[in-house]
Simulated assay, not measured.
Amino acid sequence: MEIILTVLASILFSTGIYNLLQKQLLRIIVGTVLISHGAHLFLLTMSQVKRGAPPLLVDDVSSYTDPLPQALILTAIVISFGVTSFLLVLAYRTYTLNKTDNMEEMRGSDYD
C-alpha cells in the first residue's frame, strides 16, 4: 500500500513541477495545488498506514493508529485550500487588470 501511495505522490510532485514551469498563471496555481496534494500523500505514507486499528489506546488493544499525522494532514489541507483560494482571487484580479494570464506578457520589456 505504501508503494502505491509513494508512486502516486511522486506523480503528483512531477506534474505539479511541470505545471509550475508553464507560462500561464492558472497552470502555475494548478501546479501548487498538485504539489500540496503530493505533500499530503507523502506525509500520510510516512506515517505508516494502518487499517482497522482504533485511533485510541484502550486496555484490550495491543496496536493502535496514531491520530497525529491525520490531524496534521487535515490542517494542511485547510491551509492549502485557503492559499489556493487566495491565489485564484489574485489571478482573477491580475487578469482583469492586465487582460492576460501569460507571465511573459506581464513581465514587460526591459529593453525600451
Rank of each mutant, 00 (worst) to 15 (best):
F86Q: 06
D66S: 10
I77D: 01
P67T: 07
S63E: 15
Y64V: 15
S85E: 03
D59P: 06
D66C: 09
L68W: 03
A71W: 02
V83P: 00
V78T: 11
T75V: 12
F81N: 09
S80C: 03
L68R: 11
D66H: 04
A71M: 13
F81V: 13
I73K: 00
P69S: 04
P69E: 01
L87F: 08
P67V: 05
P69N: 03
Y64A: 15
T65H: 03
T65Y: 03
F86M: 09
V83D: 00
L88I: 05
L88P: 04
D59W: 04
P69W: 01
I77Y: 02
L72N: 09
V89M: 12
L87E: 02
G82N: 03
D60M: 02
S80R: 01
Q70V: 15
F81I: 11
F86Y: 11
L68P: 01
S63D: 15
L74F: 10
A71H: 07
V83C: 08
D60G: 12
S63K: 12
L87D: 01
A76E: 05
I77L: 10
Q70K: 08
D66K: 03
S80E: 03
S62M: 11
V83I: 14
S62W: 12
V78F: 09
L68E: 06
I73G: 03
T65D: 08
V83M: 08
I77W: 00
D66I: 07
D66L: 05
T75K: 05
V89G: 12
L87S: 08
Q70H: 13
V89K: 12
Y64D: 11
P67I: 07
V61K: 08
T84V: 06
L74T: 15
L87R: 01
P69T: 04
L68A: 12
I79L: 13
V78E: 00
L68C: 06
